[in-house]
């Protein structure tokens, strides 16, 4: 059981139709995504804005229907014909933490009711047990019990994110998708929330899919890292390796671009160009227009994610 992944994503694809002045076109948000997450592990998912991180995370919890490919959660395939039924079976074992702490709490709902919402939906708890659980959850995320009767606007961004985490943990989920949970927070709040997530993982044995665009934060939380670019995963590797020895040129570019809090640091030249349009993706490797190492093959053939070392995979023709 323990070496069975709890999340297994195979060749996941998703397109959206977008309307614009010229008609309707197809946006390729995910074009063949593969990853798995083991029990107790945190997979950090990084990549540029629009690369499909949120879409992938939303599909995992059933907020967005998958296009094609398969998603197995705890062994249940939620993308098959009876996907809805399978999803309902694992529903209480999954949760989602959103990026924007200002939009993820109903402004007209008291904190106590907000945290109790998953309990109320699942039902089956006495009034007292429910209230005890809420108090316990507040304690777990380090907020005073007096918060129960207060409203979201009375809390700062970091405190709200704690409330959101408490709500997510209400039903003791085993797997939590954290979609940029600290991106809207400043450094000190960010560190507090990251530590909280790590403590909770230690205490409750949670597994996370941690979505972020900040590689330094991902380093602090992840066991493995997957780098996404324009709808596909270009590299996955254990944390220790991706930072010391990134293989995909985009992973390298991403690392080089992080500003360092060190005035003496001399950065490598930054990668030029922009993320390609998902409406009209370039042929071949989607990174080739920006890649300093691109050669002929990159322009015509899409590289696939292949083993490139122990427990690591990369989608790049340089490693073929």
């Amino acid at each position: 059981m323990s070496d069975q992944p709890i999340v297994e994503v195979r060749d996941l694809r998703k397109t959206f139709s977008v309307k614009h002045a010229g008609g309707v076109s197809t946006l390729h948000a995910l074009s063949g995504v593969n990853f798995e997450i083991m029990r107790g592990e945190t997979l950090g998912l990084v990549g540029e804005s629009g690369s499909g991180k949120t879409t992938a995370g939303r599909i995992l919890v059933g907020l967005v229907p998958a296009g094609s490919g398969s998603v197995r959660l705890f062994g249940h395939d939620i993308t098959g014909a009876d996907g809805k039924v399978q999803l309902a079976k694992v529903r209480t074992r999954l949760q989602f933490v959103f990026q924007d702490p200002y939009a993820s709490l109903n402004p007209r709902m008291r904190i106590g009711s907000a945290i109790a919402e998953p309990l109320d939906i699942a039902g089956g708890l006495s009034r007292k047990d429910r209230n005890d659980r809420v108090a316990e959850l507040l304690d777990l995320v380090g907020l005073p019990k007096t918060s129960i009767d207060r409203y979201p606007h009375e809390f700062s961004g970091g405190q709200r994110q704690r409330i959101v985490i408490a709500r997510a943990l209400a039903l003791n989920p085993e797997f939590v998708v954290c979609d940029e949970p600290v991106s809207a927070l400043d450094v000190s709040m960010q560190a507090q929330i990251v530590n909280l997530l790590l403590d909770l993982q230690d205490r409750l044995g949670l597994s996370y899919l941690f979505i972020a665009h900040d590689l330094a934060v991902v380093r602090a939380v992840s066991t493995r890292v997957a780098v996404m670019y324009a709808g596909s995963i270009v590299e996955t590797a254990p944390k220790s390796q991706i930072y010391s020895d990134p293989q995909h040129p985009y992973s390298r570019a991403l690392l080089d671009a992080v500003p360092r809090a060190d005035p003496d640091y001399v950065r490598h030249p930054v990668v030029s160009g922009e993320v390609p349009s998902l409406l009209d993706p370039p042929p071949g490797c989607s990174f080739h227009p920006r890649c300093p190492f691109a050669f002929e093959r990159c322009r015509v053939e899409v590289p696939i994610l292949k083993e490139s070392g122990p427990d690591r995979r990369v989608a790049c023709h340089l490693f073929a």
């Binding site: 700062s156 405190q159 000190s188 560190a191 530590n195 790590l198 900040d214 330094a216 934060v217 360092r260």
Partner: peptide, 24 residues
């Protein structure tokens, strides 16, 4: 000092990030 310490490191691993307790 607290602000500088709270920046997550890109080049090394630490079991926990350094925080400034409390809020502004």
């Amino acid at each position: 000092m607290g602000l500088i310490a709270a920046v997550p490191a890109l080049d090394s691993d630490a079991p926990r990030l350094t925080t400034i307790a409390g809020r502004i």
